[in-house]
Design a protein around this nucleic acid. Structure first.
Length: 475
DNA sequence: CGTAGACCTGCTTTC
DNA sequence: CATTCCAGGTCTACG
């Protein structure tokens, strides 16, 4: 009994550890930001509401920011004022690992408060929340500039934020992303951290269960251990992302190959060594803090691209997601697809696809039948020949980026993030049919069923086409 | 300078 | 159920 009492006390203390991030869901949606392939380190975790009798579950995200294990949640509150009830969402976080959070508990008050302030500052910085312009305002600007696509989409991607990650972590993570899928990227990044990163020890209540969607097995829902009435206070170990120094010193290709990095295994140690040579993380931070000019942006990209394993796409991601280069639009296959679908009324982008191909089969011998599509007479999907995996050339990237920058301006990268998020399966599902970008599967199916191309209504995005999709997401 | 292959691996889809 | 495809590209070798 006494046991129980003390545990309750502890939990309430824990509950008090939640601190407001001081933002709103117009400015930050966790679901549209954390699991969207900007960072690969966040896990969705189910928690039980400790104040609620029924102990309802709610979802949170747990990840690592620097050397802190951070848990974040969106808490809904119902307030009643003058016979009306309002629903507000408060976004809160707390630090889980003891080595960090103890500092602000056991030391003297002043020190503690200072530390608390620092934590909030750091977490806010990670989420880019100190931007001069609130995301909501930016979305309005984007919508005004592009009512046809962004305007109709914005309600569904509200709060889709561009992060501001530690540069080396971001860069190295994206080196893993080439020719790869998100699930495996996550796995690789995680194993890299486990292997080389500093240990971060957390005390975890046994009642919180991981519901990691995808990465490691599906051990959820298996209530084999029904001991959750007992307050087993296990400790869980997380890992910081390894520093470039740690990687440069300890990391080698063979180990990474054994960890499943494939051909990317040689890039990581090589890059880490090169980064250390150039001054380590500080070198990258210098690129971040340089004046926000076109010239410096170009320079940052050039510098990054000279690192092993870093091409224009990865450099773009690092620049946008960690180096404050907000006008950068990293063009990958998805961005290319969506740009071609929604921002290419004259078929400029489409016409660039003709030469690109990447196949292993020797289509030469039997290539007797060539498509005579020399001039794309119709702007609609001229290059729909055999399904050669489309590869995006630097020239295509440049064109695509320029096009989007011309529409969205200095924060084009933020617009890109939102547009990209709209293409992710979970978000896509929440869109009304007519806003969904056709997938390859869709097109394939269309071909099979009967050539009926959905007949794109290719009008320039200029007119506020009279429907007001008022509110809401279909989450 | 601008383009074809090769390149690791695991998940999904199809034979 | 095994096979093939594809996944948020980059590097290298050639015209």
């Amino acid at each position: 009994m006494k046991n129980k009492r003390s545990s309750i006390k502890r939990r309430n203390q824990n509950e008090e550890n939640w601190k407001s991030l001081r933002t709103t869901r117009d400015d930050l949606s966790l679901d549209r930001t954390l699991p969207t392939g900007q960072s690969f380190r966040w896990q969705k975790v189910e928690e039980y509401d400790e104040n609620d009798e029924n102990e309802k579950k709610y979802s949170t995200y747990v990840g690592v920011i620097g050397r802190r294990v951070v848990q974040i949640r969106e808490r809904m509150e119902f307030e009643e004022e003058e016979e009306k009830s309002y629903e507000t969402t408060t976004i809160e976080f707390r630090v889980l690992n003891t080595n960090e959070s103890n500092i602000c508990k056991n030391e003297d008050k002043e020190n503690g408060e200072q530390e608390e302030e620092q934590v909030t500052k750091d977490v806010r910085a990670y989420f880019n929340l100190d931007d001069p312009i609130p995301l909501k305002d930016l979305f309005e600007q984007f919508s005004k500039a592009d009512p046809y696509r962004f305007g109709r989409l914005s309600a569904y991607v509200r709060g889709a934020r561009t992060l501001r990650q530690p540069p080396a972590e971001c860069l190295i993570s994206f080196v893993c992303s080439s020719n790869n899928n998100i699930a495996r990227i996550k796995k690789m990044v995680e194993s890299l951290c486990e292997k080389y990163g500093e240990e971060l020890v957390c005390n975890v209540s046994s009642r919180s269960r991981s519901r990691s969607s995808g990465s490691s097995g599906r051990d959820d829902d298996e209530e084999n251990e029904v001991n959750d009435k007992e307050e087993i206070n296990e400790s869980k170990i997380y890992h910081a992302f390894p520093t470039v120094e740690q990687l440069a010193e300890k990391c080698d290709e063979q180990t990474l190959r054994d960890l499943g990095f494939g051909y990317r295994a040689k890039f990581i140690p090589a890059m880490a060594k090169e980064l250390v040579k150039r001054g380590g993380e500080a070198y990258l931070l210098k690129l971040r803090d340089a004046p926000q000019t076109e010239e410096e942006k170009y320079r940052a990209i050039t510098e990054l691209t000279s690192l092993p394993g870093v091409g224009p796409k990865v450099a773009g991601c690092a620049a946008l997601f960690s180096l404050d280069k907000k006008s950068v639009v990293p063009v990958d296959t998805h961005v290319w697809q969506l740009a071609r679908e929604h921002f290419d009324p004259n078929g400029e982008l489409a016409s660039m696809e003709t030469t690109a191909s990447t196949t292993k089969g020797s289509a030469n011998e039997e290539g007797a039948e060539q498509q005579r599509h020399k001039e794309s007479s119709t702007p609609t999907t001229p290059t729909k020949q055999k399904d050669k995996p489309l590869s995006i050339t630097p020239k295509m990237m440049k064109k695509c980026e320029e096009m989007l920058v011309s529409i969205y301006g200095a924060y084009a990268g933020y617009a890109h993030t939102a547009l990209f998020v709209a293409e992710l399966p979970t978000v896509r599902e929440s869109l009304p049919e007519h806003l969904r970008t056709p997938t390859k599967a869709d097109k394939k199916r269309g071909e099979k069923n009967g050539e009926k191309k959905p007949e794109k209504k290719k009008r320039k995005f200029l007119k506020v086409d009279g429907e007001n999709k008022s509110d809401d997401d279909g989450a």
